[in-house]
């Protein structure tokens, strides 16, 4: 292994670990003002919205409908109350079929 690359990896690991770790060590949790606690409870759902859009539209660079179809398939299967794994496999199946037909 090249020493330079190893140092780079260690540095990348350190700067990635610190933001992940600090909140668990520094904040006690459940003691913040109610407003801040409310905001933190909102974070997962706002994050999910941001993680899905706009990235899902660009999973296939040439065809934006590919992403739209994948999102719609996942949304419908999830809305019917299916388990997350079924949602994942279902949307993969729908897109495989779409590529096969196109």
């Amino acid at each position: 292994m090249k020493t330079e690359i190893v140092w780079m990896i260690l540095g990348m690991g350190l700067v990635t670990y610190i933001p992940r770790m600090i909140p668990f060590v520094l904040f006690k949790g459940k003691e913040l003002p109610p407003f801040i606690q409310g905001v933190l409870k909102n974070v997962p759902y706002a994050t999910l919205g941001a993680l899905i859009f706009p990235a899902i539209l660009f999973i296939q660079k040439e065809d934006i409908w590919y992403g739209v179809l994948g999102a719609a398939a996942a949304f419908i299967v999830a809305f019917l109350g299916a388990n997350v794994i079924v949602v994942v496999l279902g949307s993969i199946a729908v897109l495989s079929l779409y590529s096969y037909l196109m």
Partner: peptide, 9 residues
């Protein structure tokens, strides 16, 4: 992304 949707819905 499908997983994120499956968790959110």
């Amino acid at each position: 992304y499908a997983m994120f949707i499956g968790l959110l819905v």
